[in-house]
């Protein structure tokens, strides 16, 4: 038999991967959904009785003993809302710094480009915990940043950043900045600069070229970068925990708290995880739609 007829057999090479990810990740994620509808056991864990308590607790305040008329519970909604805003701001800042960087790298001579990419990649490979701890050390009240600024005479008293929203913001931005640069770099590198030249020839200014020609062409890379920053920022744990302290709770810390020690509430933690996952899937669906629309346009053009 010819080799062409053998190829279907090769799909069985996927079996170990199917089994591992299917059994040890897909199934557990489904189990999280199940857990979010169970009754909490007081020392952690669950009681296998159907209950909507977890979602009820998330949405409504029924007083200390649960016997008052329900009113909207703002605590958790605020945490989720703050997480989304923080993640969006982090994405925006990454874009503001990341786009010019990616563009700058992509317009270097081909020989030096890989060195620049290497420089951006290194922090991505460095342990995120160590990077966050480093940031914490740098921006402490009596840390090197404040000492340096004071030595230069730029400030008289230390800037207090640690345990503020700004520190969390800075941490998120710093953590995921390489994720913004790399996909944008990849699309600018593929960009045909003859388009910019044609636009310049037709009397467009630099900024018009950027706005009207370049950015629309590299949009898939920009969207990919934004998703790659937004998604992990939304569920981030280390930056809020280490840089934000107890006051600036984000989703990640809220979930972690439900599973640590005996004070936790597993169904509630599971419900929070389900809500987070839903938000992320929504973002990914929007992304996939944008990408496929882009591809369809490209195909029409080609």
């Amino acid at each position: 038999m010819a080799s062409g007829t053998f190829t279907p057999v090769r799909k069985w090479l996927l079996l170990p991967t199917w089994v591992t990810i299917g059994f040890f990740l897909l199934l557990p994620i489904l189990l999280v959904v199940v857990y979010s509808f169970l009754t909490k056991e007081f020392r952690g864990g669950v009681d296998w009785t159907f209950s909507l308590d977890a979602y009820d607790q998330f949405m409504f305040d029924r007083g200390l003993f649960g016997d008052e008329a329900p009113s909207i519970e703002w605590t958790y909604i605020t945490i989720f809302f703050r997480s989304i805003v923080q993640a969006l701001i982090a994405t925006l800042f990454c874009l503001i710094i990341g786009f010019p960087t990616a563009y700058f790298i992509a317009t270097r001579p081909a020989s030096s480009r890989s060195i620049w990419v290497f420089l951006i990649t290194v922090p991505y490979w460095v342990n995120l915990l160590i990077r966050t701890v480093s940031m914490k050390f740098l921006i402490r009240d009596n840390g090197p940043m404040n000492q340096g600024l004071m030595a230069l005479g730029l400030i008289d008293t230390p800037i207090h950043l640690i345990n503020t929203n700004i520190a969390v913001q800075l941490g998120l931005f710093y953590s995921y900045l390489p994720f913004m640069v790399l996909p944008i770099y990849a699309s600018v590198e593929r960009y045909n600069f003859a388009l910019s030249e044609a636009a310049a020839d037709l009397y467009a200014s630099r900024w018009t070229i950027l706005r009207e020609v370049l950015i629309p062409s590299v949009k898939p890379g920009i969207i990919a970068g934004c998703i790659l920053v937004f998604v992990p920022s939304l569920g981030a744990f280390l930056a809020p925990d280490l840089l934000g302290g107890a006051k600036t709770f984000m989703i990640g810390s809220l979930i972690e708290e439900q599973f640590k020690g005996t004070a936790g509430n597993w169904p509630f933690g599971a419900a929070c995880a389900v809500i987070l996952l839903t938000l992320v899937l929504m973002a990914l669906t929007l992304y996939a739609r944008a990408q496929s629309k882009e591809r369809a346009q490209e195909q029409r053009a080609g």
């Binding site: 557990p28 994620i29 999280v32 998604v231 569920g235 979930i255 599971a270 995880a273």
Partner: peptide
């Protein structure tokens, strides 16, 4: 999937 969700899922499983 966000890491924290993977973590929760794995723990529960």
């Amino acid at each position: 999937v966000p890491e924290i969700v993977t973590a929760v899922a794995t723990l529960i499983f």
